[in-house]
Amino acid sequence: MAELVVSGLVRAFDDVRAVDGIDFTVRDGEFLTLLGPSGCGKSTTLAAVAGLDRPDEGRISLGGTVFFDAASGVFVPPERREIGLVFQSYALWPHLTVRQNLEFPLKLRRIGRAERARRIEDALGLVEMTRYADRYPHALSGGQQQRVALARTLVYRPGLLLLDEPLSNLDAKLRERARTWLRHLQSQVGVTTVYVTHDQAEALALSDRIAVMNGGKIVQLADPRTIYDHPSDAFIADFIGSSNFLCGTVLGSDGGTVRVDLGERLELNAPSPRPLTPGTRVRVSVRPEQIGLVTPSDANGANVFAVEILERTFLGAHNTLEVQAGESRFRVECRAVPEGNHIHVHIPENAGIVFPQAADN
């Protein structure tokens, strides 16, 4: 196993930079996720690491081996990189059994029969598919095919595992179970892993760290909790999980807290990671689950608002309320739906994050 280092990576298509000078390191045995919306450059980055696409600039190395270096003209073809790659499509050979699918990459590497048999047994045991060794892919479920595809990749013991949205073909319930199983498998094997997805829940559940991408750049690289609780900009706050954005104007500040005028004599106190002068237009990001309901007797103090319920949505484990206070409309999560259409809510002062509002917003 070894760490992956990507530096100054650029890939352009005509005048569009799909990957625009990104840098990141995946530590030995780490699970790093490239997360972002469609077109952000995450799959292009993965293809460059795999050797399926040649970048225009930059350098890629795994341990002491350089896979690509634009400056010196080095480009190692994918078949010589000895890395594992699992696609969204499992790409199993339909005419081969599970055992024969796993045997194929070992034969290519001229591994002896006895060693092949031992490795296949080990790999199938890891993914709990030993009893299906003699079945053909068409006789397996989607989840079982996914496990076979991973076993086929792990059987030749790659130094790096690349996963390109491997769970996207599974139904929601199976996908949730597969996340837990995949994370356990990766930590058990200890292989350095790069995972590509646009699913925030997958990224948060699986990753040691997440690289959030937008417009070909990495806009934040941190552990899942930091990404969720302390997004570095409004795009990340909006993309990761669910956020309300309350727009207003800074009235003043006290230390790291600012007072925001939301209109109609409503004020919100919220922390700001950057100094802001009075009059600055801002957007305050608040997660729906951080907003609490309060009784009329407790409806006093800072950040308590009288709101009108516009819509109620039942989601099983919780309910979502669409509410309005003055000019501000936002969502609140709660276990039980209150009676009536007029209630009070409290936004904890440390719940919001203040971002300066772009001129075109």
Rank of each mutant, 00 (worst) to 15 (best):
M1D: 02
M1R: 06
A2R: 11
E3N: 10
V5P: 01
V5Y: 07
G8D: 14
L9A: 05
V10L: 10
V10W: 11
D14L: 06
D15F: 00
A18R: 03
G21I: 06
D28Q: 13
E30P: 04
T33R: 07
T33V: 14
T33C: 12
L35F: 11
S38N: 12
C40K: 04
G41V: 06
S43V: 04
T44C: 00
T44G: 00
T45Y: 02
L46W: 00
A50W: 01
L52H: 04
D53A: 15
R54E: 14
D56M: 09
R59W: 14
G64E: 13
T65I: 12
F67I: 11
F68N: 03
F68D: 03
A70V: 05
A71D: 13
F75M: 09
R81W: 09
G84V: 02
Q88G: 03
S89H: 14
S89L: 07
Y90E: 03
L92W: 00
L92P: 01
T97H: 08
V98R: 06
E103K: 12
E103V: 11
P105I: 02
L106A: 10
L108K: 02
R109V: 07
R113I: 14
R118T: 15
I120T: 06
E121D: 15
A123Q: 04
A123L: 06
M129I: 08
R135C: 10
P137Q: 05
G142N: 08
G143K: 02
A149G: 02
R152E: 02
L154S: 04
R157H: 09
P158I: 07
L163F: 05
L167Y: 03
L170F: 08
A172R: 02
A172C: 01
K173Q: 13
L182C: 07
R183C: 09
L185Y: 09
Q188E: 12
T193F: 05
V194S: 00
V194M: 10
V194L: 13
T197P: 07
D199A: 11
A203E: 06
A205T: 06
S207V: 13
I210S: 05
M213C: 02
N214A: 10
L221N: 04
A222E: 04
D223Y: 04
I227Q: 04
D229N: 07
D233N: 15
F235R: 01
I236A: 01
A237T: 04
A237P: 00
D238E: 13
L246K: 03
C247I: 14
C247W: 13
V250Y: 03
V250H: 05
L251I: 12
L251F: 03
D254L: 15
G256I: 11
L262Q: 03
G263R: 15
L266V: 10
E267S: 15
N269H: 10
A270L: 13
A270R: 08
L276E: 05
P278R: 05
T280M: 09
R281H: 15
R281Y: 10
V282D: 02
V284A: 02
S285K: 00
V286Y: 07
P288N: 00
E289F: 10
I291W: 05
G292T: 11
L293C: 14
V294I: 14
A306D: 09
L310R: 15
L310Q: 15
E311F: 13
F314K: 01
L315S: 05
T320A: 11
E322K: 09
V332N: 04
V332S: 06
A336F: 09
A336P: 01
A336T: 13
P348R: 07
A351F: 06
I353C: 01
A359N: 06
D360T: 11
